[in-house]
């Protein structure tokens, strides 16, 4: 049972890293995304307006390292406990 839970923890850690990799590999988690809108202004010039829109992108420092590291740690502890239980039996 403990070994299975450890595998789940490792899988979740992997999923976390994969999510981070596929959502832009940001250092810090983004809760809003900067969107650039190019348009003509009232002066007839082309300008780029930057707006914030809701959009979650996982960050390495404040998401993956803590969450992923924690899950890997839990997995290692569970594996250790599983081995110890098997040895004792």
């Amino acid at each position: 049972m403990k070994a299975k839970l450890a595998l789940v923890a490792f899988a979740l850690a992997g999923a976390l890293v994969a999510t981070w990799a596929f959502t832009g590999m940001h250092a810090a988690t983004q809760f809003e995304q900067q969107v650039e809108i190019t348009e003509k202004d009232e002066f007839g010039d082309t300008v780029t307006r930057k707006e914030w829109r809701a959009g979650f992108q996982l960050g390495l420092m404040d998401g993956v390292l803590g969450g992923g590291g924690g899950l890997i740690g839990v997995g290692i502890v569970l594996l250790f406990l599983d081995r110890r239980a098997k040895r004792a039996a």
Binding site: A28, T29, Q30, F31, E32, Q34, W52, G59, D62
Partner: peptide, 8 residues
């Protein structure tokens, strides 16, 4: 000032 991350 904003960066898209309230903690930051």
């Amino acid at each position: 000032m904003k960066t898209g991350n309230t903690t930051r």
